[in-house]
Amino acid sequence: MSSLPQILRAKLAATPSGRLPFAQVMELALYHPEHGYYGPGPLKIGRQGDFFTSVSVGPLYGKLLAMRALQDWQALGKPAGFTIIEQGAHDGQLAEDILSALEGHNFRYLIVEPNPAYREAQARRLDGHPVHWVENLAALKSIPLHAFFVCNELPDAFPVHLVRWNGERWEEMFVEPDGAEAFRFIPGSCSCEDLEAEVKHLPHDLTTGHVLEINLAMLAWIRDLAQSAFRGSIFIADYGLDAEEFYADARAEGTIRRYRQHQMDGHVLEDLGGCDLTTHVNFTRLIEEALRHGLLQREYDLQGRVLGRMATAWIQSLEGSPLDPATMRQFQSLTHPALMGRSFRCLILEKPPSP
């Protein structure tokens, strides 16, 4: 049985140049159906997994998103057929938390999921709930008409191209074999026109060797999302930075990292398929592309501030009654600057009716 490094070496040997853009290597390492990190099915998240997410903190995150969805539904005039759409639903835990918080409301729940193993795991968890599945965003070009779209830590897992400033121009970083077992990076010209267009807008005054990630898949994703039929809000939560923060000397090695058992390092060509690969989202570039395709920016801030504002009406409704200890711990984990409150950012876009 072939391992993922063996599969990669065969792919490299089959290419005329003997090398591949890092984006193709990252896609293989994460999404190969048998040997990719995410490919075979949902992973354990939290203390027993490789990383924490806002969802793994507890059900409060889903409750806050449910309250936001309810507010949007009311602002839209309480339309029939209102749908919550989630992409990157993993094992269905966030969907279960949102639906539990919305018990009594006749909302549809739609999950965008191309992987059959994930759909099966989600269906088991969500048995009895009004959930439907589609394979991709193209299925949303005609329905639903009103929706609240949510994704938690999705764009950071899209395969990225790596580029490096050589003191005179931006070069793409390719992957090639390094001896019998390992792999290494080698610079070259951009592998596609879309990447060439992106690097034209990058600064030319950075330190020689500065590495940046170019997430072409994220830009294609937000364009597809902008073409969907629904009217409503889009909630994107992820860890990321503004464009200027990417250019700081402190991040000259880029933000691409591998995660395993809550440990992080930059050895992204080692143990391919056996660890998570992730990169910070360039929120400046994401917002630019969203606005260019007709979406409207409603809110962009640190997660702690966004969730704190979302929780205001709910906390006021308690009329001074304290939160129970478990809920308080969850709220602090999600919003405190020393925990997830500063590490993650939230972007809320508005999608007006399709022309």
Rank of each mutant, 00 (worst) to 15 (best):
W221C: 05
S189V: 11
I186T: 09
H204Y: 05
W170L: 11
E198H: 06
S228V: 12
E153R: 09
W221G: 04
N215R: 05
A157K: 12
G209R: 08
G232D: 06
K200Y: 00
E181W: 11
G188A: 08
A157R: 11
G179N: 13
S233P: 12
A226R: 04
E181H: 14
E253I: 00
G167L: 05
E153V: 05
L241Q: 04
G209L: 10
A250R: 12
I256W: 01
E244H: 13
S191M: 12
L206K: 01
E181Q: 15
V268G: 11
I256N: 02
R169G: 14
I143P: 14
W170A: 08
E196D: 10
A252L: 05
G273T: 02
P159D: 07
V163C: 05
L219F: 06
E196Y: 03
F183C: 06
H161E: 10
P159S: 11
E172G: 10
A138K: 11
F149T: 00
V211C: 01
C275K: 08
P187D: 05
Y239F: 07
G266M: 06
L137H: 04
I186S: 12
A139I: 01
E213L: 02
E198L: 09
F235K: 11
P159R: 07
N215S: 09
L137N: 05
Y247E: 00
W221V: 02
L154K: 08
D238R: 00
A229Q: 14
V160F: 04
Q263S: 13
H146Y: 15
F230H: 06
N166H: 10
E253L: 14
H210Q: 04
